[in-house]
Design a binder for these strands. Sequence first.
DNA 1: TATTATAATGACTTTATAGTCATAAGTCAA
DNA 2: TTGACTTATGACTATAAAGTCATTATAATA
Lengths: 204, 204
Amino acid sequence: MAEEETGKINKFDCILASARKLIEQEGFSNFTMDKLANNAGVAKGTIYLYFKDKNDVLENVLKSGFQTMFSRMADKVEKKETPEEKIKTLIYENLLYIGENKYFFKTVFLDEMHVVFLKKTSQESYNLRRKKYAVFISEIIIKGIDEGIFKNVLDPLKTGFYLISLIKTNAIYNFRNNHAEFNEDLIKLESAEIFDIFIDGIKN
Amino acid sequence: MAEEETGKINKFDCILASARKLIEQEGFSNFTMDKLANNAGVAKGTIYLYFKDKNDVLENVLKSGFQTMFSRMADKVEKKETPEEKIKTLIYENLLYIGENKYFFKTVFLDEMHVVFLKKTSQESYNLRRKKYAVFISEIIIKGIDEGIFKNVLDPLKTGFYLISLIKTNAIYNFRNNHAEFNEDLIKLESAEIFDIFIDGIKN
DNA sequence: TATTATAATGACTTTATAGTCATAAGTCAA
DNA sequence: TTGACTTATGACTATAAAGTCATTATAATA
């Protein structure tokens, strides 16, 4: 706790923030340790006091970018009663979070593909995070199937991935078409659109 | 025409085939010109007689991988009458092509993301190809909306991208879960699954 | 203030790989 | 067979960027 006030932790955060900013601005392929040192206002060697290597920097940037998303979304979703309401909320919260972290996700989704630059182990943890999300959705789907609302032929996990891909595709579409202003009204509209397609697609 | 028989053309194809094989086996990030030369059984300098640079090799590998897909799919789709039948055929043909070029798409989809390694101009042509596909789908959607079958609130182009992402997600899911055997029965099942979700999602 | 411990520096080393080019081998018309 | 032209070679150069480490600056302690 006290540690959080030390220079060490602050410098870690400071370098991490610089890294994220750089990556948002120039993409993963143009991100170098020299640029990071320069941008963070430290010497290159200093970075290696706080991070193991470049992969460690990238992994932390990604982790921090996705960190709160899942828990925040899960909180809201769990408050809802029906599978349908849960899915509606999930889509909305997800798009909201993407909108709030517009520049981060724009790079992660468009400038693709961070993943390439990660070591195998880091890639796996990235995929695991994705899968965890799909599993979360699959549980909602299963509940809906049990209640007889959703088609019982669905593969719940795969259906979870389908929903994630719809959300991502929506975000990419809007990034590309410069609907840069992610105001709440737009997000309501967009999430309703995805919801209407997805829910009719899986309902009995 | 006569040229097609010359060594020049053959060597171009031979290098290209080696490049594709290497990329399928080891992914884009491990692909080097030295390996290519070695694998194709030519000296490195020779590659540069047939390709401008590494980007040119990658671009050609990608182009050749996607080449016939679109035209073959479009041919089959155009023979169908109703928007629903067109969409059903489109999904099936797309999955079939992916199955036939399993190793290629496995790398392109999973080992992600080739795109990073391309120059801006090549990335654009990749995105254009994607968009062309989405436009093709959007025309079917528009027809369906006009006929009153599909929801008239749909953004046809975005909906096209949605369908593409569902197909891609399905393929990735099956690659990951090692349903490596892409036999026609599996493809029929998988494409029917996507169709059922998508069509119910967009129907009135 | 002197001494020790910790943090920071950046010039340097290392490595990987794209692309080059002088040289050699092969082909073919006269 | 020869000489001109085409094709192929691979050792070499250039470059970018990751990661190191001897040195220096700063802070903590006695």
